[in-house]
């Protein structure tokens, strides 16, 4: 999979935040691409810039304090960073959709599921909404509710006719997440960006959601950028994984290759930190993610790297090909990569 066209490609993305304490240089030359029909994982520890990346793609980065310093985001041939607000909305609203992490705060508590979904369905249908209708004073007799029920059925919500009359607080976390997935699928998007959609859920519920996403990807021919901090979840879902560290891409490879044979010392550290059911030894990584206001020189991972060399402290490693469609940003490979 993923051999076809590229649907999303990010080059040299730099995003800074102006904070009280100075400029926080969060994203530093992020490179990433998602092929048509490909499920790509973006994995990294808390605070490494996964959500900032997603928000930048979705153009929901708060500016200020955020600033996009450099880079381009090509989506279906358009550079999203150069489009005007209007054009951007045109391109994105139909073709790109988003599943947020927190199912609690992402639904408006004053609307029922049916109302919330109905609005979105009508909006996608590009029907003009009159002021009376907008204020909820007049209900258009249309099929949006029937459509909502159908969508809820598609995400396997039992008793969907009941659920559309409920308010978000009356639903469990897993149910809310299913509603959000249903909403994300309304416009038949080409790319789905999911930011840790199962992090707040229990494993048995998480499993159901992952199965659902897997199924929808096949059915709807979706491309997915799936953000998670859990390598196990990424393994289950993704064709390819990007490992992110401190605002930089450390490495990318096919899921199997990455997990069985990690190249970047950070990836190895991450994998060997995970307790395994086989009872193999697991050890962590010393230190912690750096401060973005004054990030380490050279490779941002060097202060924690067990294989640090002199060059790592001075030069930032480029993302280079190491064969098998793999890219690694590490000086251990940058010399070998040339050959």
């Amino acid at each position: 999979m993923g051999l076809g066209n590229t649907i999303l490609s990010i080059e040299g993305l730099k995003v800074h935040f102006d904070t009280m304490d100075g400029t926080s240089r969060v994203l530093d030359d992020v490179e990433l691409s998602v092929g048509e029909g490909e499920v790509v994982g973006l994995v990294g520890e808390t605070g490494c810039g996964k959500s900032v990346t997603a928000k930048t793609i979705l153009r929901s980065l708060p500016v200020p304090p955020g600033r996009i310093i450099d880079g381009e985001i090509l989506f279906l041939g358009n550079n999203l960073l150069e489009l005007s607000r209007e054009e951007g909305h045109q391109v994105m609203s139909k073709k790109m959709s988003y599943i947020p992490q927190d199912p609690m705060t992402s639904l408006n508590p004053v609307f029922t599921v049916g109302e919330e979904m109905g609005d979105l369905i009508r909006w996608h249908g590009r029907r003009r909404v009159g002021p009376l209708e907008f204020m909820g004073l007049r209900r258009r007799h249309d099929n949006s509710l029937a459509k909502a029920v159908e969508l809820l059925d598609r995400v396997k919500i039992p008793a969907s006719r009941e659920i559309i009359k409920r308010y978000p607080v009356e639903l469990s976390g897993g149910m809310r997440q299913r509603v959000l997935i249903a909403m994300a699928l309304i416009g038949h998007p080409s790319l789905l960006i999911a930011d840790e959609p199962t992090t707040a859920l229990d494993v048995t519920i998480q499993k159901g959601i992952l199965e659902l996403i897997e199924e929808k990807v096949k059915e709807e021919e979706l491309s997915v950028l799936y953000i998670t901090h859990n390598l196990g979840v990424a393994r289950r879902l993704c064709d390819r994984i990007y490992v992110m560290y401190a605002g930089t891409i450390a490495e990318t490879a096919k899921t199997e290759d990455l997990l069985d044979n990690p190249r970047h010392p950070y990836t190895s550290g991450l994998i060997s930190s995970i307790p395994k059911l086989t009872g193999d030894e697991f050890k962590g990584i010393d230190g912690r993610i750096p401060d973005y206001i004054d990030p380490p020189s050279g490779c941002r991972f060097h202060p924690r790297c067990p294989e640090v060399m002199e060059i790592c402290k001075q030069e930032k490693p480029e993302l280079v090909k190491v064969g098998g469609g793999r890219l690694v940003a590490c000086h251990l490979f940058s010399t070998r990569g040339e050959s």
Binding site: V203, T204, Q206, K207, N230, L231, G232, V233, R235, R236, L259, D260, I271, I274, K276, L277, T278
Partner: peptide
């Protein structure tokens, strides 16, 4: 059993 089978694992041995 359901709980165990839902664990996100990272290798085939697991």
């Amino acid at each position: 059993r359901a709980l165990l089978s839902a664990i996100p694992i990272i290798s085939a041995e697991e």
